[in-house]
Design a protein around this nucleic acid. Structure first.
Length: 789
RNA sequence: GGAGGUAUAGUCUAAUGGUAGGACGACAGAUUGACAUUCUGUAAACAGGAGUUCGAUUCUCCUUACCUCCACCA
């Protein structure tokens, strides 16, 4: 064994060994029970941060635990390259745009770049010690996945779960695409709240005066004493002059503004509801780039239009009041652009009717931690739109659909021909309605969530009819972070349920976020993203995992370098223990007759029991604490207790050390996979005839040692030793300085030799003691003996 | 506006209806053979208020603060 443990040397060497020996390979032919994990595919966006290390490590703890428990672990890896972050990355790298290249060419570019990134991700994740089977790698844009995604589209269509409709759609004018509710976030923006005179009596306050040309009605609350007299009247819209009716609707808040609201197509969600409910006219004034239509505004942006109309209203005397306000608006989460509502033909997945079923499925899923379920339930209860899956973009999975040029009837691709790109491919059949052969391709692409919601099916090679699907589905675990419960988790439940009638997994393990040392979320824009490789280089991956294992599942955790240092210290300590122990192990069962030997074996047996229970509940942090406690009890205490015996090759001590240390490294193997492997290879692999600690089985120390009596007897001796240590310390003696004698009063038979040997006491007498040793019922007096010169 | 979470030494955190544990840091000390990436010891904390209880840091309620998510946003 090497003198020092150097993770920088050891970890890459061990990673290589794992890969070559296929330690983490899923065995297609094994008869062992399968444990399948639906690994989150990280987005290819160019950076891997310490937040990846944090959450992937937490899932990895469980994967490694299950593997040691004998499961045939299906732990795949995916790369998400079907999305805007990847699109932007590739556009930047090649100084082009998806639009310029065209879909086919751009996808090829992405696939080519993905090859490079695949290598990088693979190296980094392997270096992080994530025990996935790389042969199960998938990427979300490759043709297999496109095929699965398109197949899903066709099947849902057959099931009557999809419809195409011209409806007001949430729209981003910057990226010129429809959005789903999931892609929105709140933002507080400065705005102007202006009060306008429509007539002498009808006065309206609004933040969107530029919508005036789209005004189609005025609303007041039917109960509003102040304003109900206007109901049924007609007024003229200032400047634009169209005549609109004043209608009554209880959605109007009489307290807000003047209590009178204008309804425009479309300023907000309520406008859409009114438009539908009262069959109002449609006046479109914004195009898909956010430019204003019509002579008056003539191509101005929305903001310019707002300024112009306010100035004009002021000049013409319609403006009564103008106030600067801050209000919260919905923006597109990626580009922070305020959303608009435009009318577009879109494909939808109908699921608003499934709310109850979805809640029921949420109840069936085992949530870890439990309280995360509420987020799912809130989301389901708050759904207002069916799932819009059309995106007006160039890069992504195309819809397998054409439309009849004559009658607009959709023509769907044949399942056998998938994947198709309707822009280049032909449907190969005529319109079923009018028989025409002239087709217009669908140029939209599918929402990325429509594809990533299929990961359990993608992993099972669904649609290929193989055995894999049966083996792994439903999967056992979905690990993911809490921020995408309403996206990835939710959409996966929806789609997988529709396709299989089953919940996609048994349990969900929801991790928190890694925060920077000041407790702020890590964002590229804040510049506080930490590169895990920096710390892996400095302290080792095991050390970094120590930090990741400290915080409870679901809790956010700020990155603290000192926790990494503690981990590095542990790894070093373990290595030194191994060096010390290697010549002092007795692998064959010997009678553990000594009180301290029984103590350490009892501790080890209890630790296995507790760690197992905690890991079964996905409480890796508690399991890690149990393992740590055992580790330090062996390292700091037990080793000191037995040194005097181990040199004499006492079989009982050597056997107990061998068992206890093996238990320690096995309990810690999921958390510190490298150093435990190295120690195992040096000390135990041959004896156990196993290739790796990670497939060597969970510690099997006999529970016969787990007796309260063994524990308490040893604990009492330990307290006596601690007391003497403290006494020596207070009396400025070195801990190994000899003591002439001690006198103990009370019932103590076993352990006297251990006290003598550990604390260099020449003689232990029975008799009157002076000082009480806490919690032992013993009294003690200590005779220091002749002072050394 | 609604929902959920959190609040423990200087810092990061754990557990618990009855002595609040650990880590880093601080301070004091030991030490030559597994380990200075060591060991031993000391000081140091339950956000505020009310209630339930023999007893509350723990359970309940309220207040405050922070973090999420959702809704509204004329």
């Amino acid at each position: 064994m090497q003198d020092r443990y150097d993770p920088k040397e050891a970890e890459p060497r061990i990673s290589k060994f794992w890969e070559q020996a296929g330690i983490y390979a899923f065995d297609q032919n094994s008869g062992s029970e399968v444990y399948a994990i639906d690994t989150p595919p990280p987005t290819i966006s160019g950076t891997i941060g310490i937040h990846h290390f944090f959450s992937y490590s937490q899932a990895d703890f469980i994967a490694r635990y299950k593997r040691m428990r004998g499961y045939n672990v299906f732990y795949p890896f995916g790369l998400d390259n079907n999305g805007i972050p990847t699109e932007l990355l590739v556009e930047k790298l090649h100084n082009t745009t998806a639009e310029r290249e065209g879909r086919e060419k751009f996808v090829a570019l992405v696939e080519q770049e993905t090859k490079n990134y695949e290598k990088m991700y693979r190296e980094v994740f392997a270096r992080m010690g994530i025990s996935v089977d790389w042969s199960l790698l998938y990427t979300t844009i490759n043709s297999d996945v496109q095929k699965a995604s398109q197949l899903s589209f066709l099947k849902l269509n057959e099931m009557g779960r999809e419809y195409r409709k011209e409806t007001p759609t949430i729209w981003c004018v910057k990226e010129r695409t429809a959005l789903s509710q999931m892609e929105l976030k709140d933002m507080v923006l400065k705005s102007k709240f202006v009060t306008l005179r429509f007539s002498d009596e009808v006065v309206i306050a609004t933040t969107r005066p530029e919508m005036l040309p789209a005004c189609v009605a005025i609303f007041v609350n039917p109960e509003d004493e102040r304003n109900k007299k206007h109901i049924g009247k007609k007024v003229r819209v200032p400047i634009f002059g169209q005549e609109v009716s004043v209608l009554a609707d209880k959605r109007v808040d009489p307290e807000k503004g003047t209590g009178i609201v204008m309804c425009c197509t479309f300023g907000d969600l309520t406008d859409i509801e009114w438009y539908k409910a009262y069959g109002l006219q449609l006046r479109i004034i914004i195009d898909d780039r956010g430019r204003m239509l019509g002579e008056y505004f003539n191509g101005l942006t929305i903001r310019q239009a707002r300024e112009k109309i306010i100035a004009d209203l002021k000049e013409k005397g319609y403006l009564i009041e103008e106030k600067e306000i801050e209000h919260t608006v919905n923006v597109h989460e990626r580009c922070n652009t305020e959303i608009e509502f435009l009318v577009k033909k879109q494909w939808y997945i109908r699921y608003l009717d499934m709310k109850e079923k979805l809640l029921e499925l949420g109840n069936k899923l085992e949530w870890h931690p439990q309280y995360m379920k509420v987020r799912y339930e809130n989301w389901v209860n708050g759904l207002q739109w069916d799932w819009s899956i059309s995106r007006q973009r160039y890069y992504g999975v195309p819809f397998p659909v054409w439309y009849c040029k004559k009658c607009d009837e959709p023509v769907f691709a044949d399942e056998g021909k998938l994947p198709v790109n309707p822009i280049n491919d032909r449907p190969g059949k005529a319109c079923s309605k009018c028989g025409s052969n002239e087709m217009v391709p669908e140029t939209d692409i599918l929402d990325t969530w429509a594809t990533s919601s299929l990961t359990p099916l993608i992993n099972g090679r669904w649609g290929e009819g193989g055995e894999l699907m049966k083996k792994i589905y439903p999967m056992d675990l979905r690990p993911q972070a809490h921020d995408i419960i309403s996206f990835w988790l939710f959409t996966t439940v929806v789609k997988c349920y529709l396709h299989t009638g089953k919940l996609p997994w048994k349990s969900a393990m929801i991790s928190g976020h890694a925060l920077d040392p000041k407790g702020r979320a890590m964002h590229k824009s804040l510049g506080n993203v930490i590169d895990p490789l920096l710390y892996i280089e400095k302290y080792g991956s095991d050390a970094l995992k120590h930090w990741a294992s400290l915080s409870k599942l679901g809790d956010d955790s700020s990155f603290q370098e000192k926790d990494v240092m503690t981990g590095a210290r542990m790894a070093n300590k373990m290595w030194n223990m191994a060096k010390f122990s290697r010549n002092n192990l007795d692998y064959d069962e010997a009678e553990a007759g000594n009180v301290m030997d029984k103590w350490v074996l009892a501790k080890a047996a209890f630790a296995v029991r507790d760690a197992t229970r905690n890991l079964d509940e996905y409480n890796y942090a508690a399991a890690k604490r149990v393992a740590d406690e055992l580790f330090w009890a062996v390292a700091d205490d037990y080793l000191e207790f037995i040194k005097h015996r181990i040199y004499k090759k006492e079989r009982s001590a050597n056997y107990a050390l061998s068992e206890a240390f093996l238990t320690v490294i096995k309990l810690l193997a999921p958390f510190m996979p490298y150093v435990t492997e190295d120690v195992y290879q040096n000390l135990y692999a041959q004896k156990e005839k196993k290739k790796s600690i990670h497939v060597s089985g969970w510690p099997s120390i006999s529970q016969k040692f787990a007796s309260q009596e063994n524990l308490e007897k040893g604990e009492r001796i330990r307290k006596v030793i601690v007391y003497i240590r403290q006494w020596k310390h207070n009396n400025k003696m070195a801990l190994n300085a000899p003591l002439e004698s001690i006198t103990i009063e009370g019932d103590l038979d076993e352990g006297i030799e251990d006290i003598k040997g550990t604390m260099s006491v020449k003689e232990v007498r029975k008799g009157k003691g002076i000082a009480e040793i806490p919690e032992t019922g013993l009294k003690i007096s200590i005779e220091r003996g002749a002072e050394a010169l």
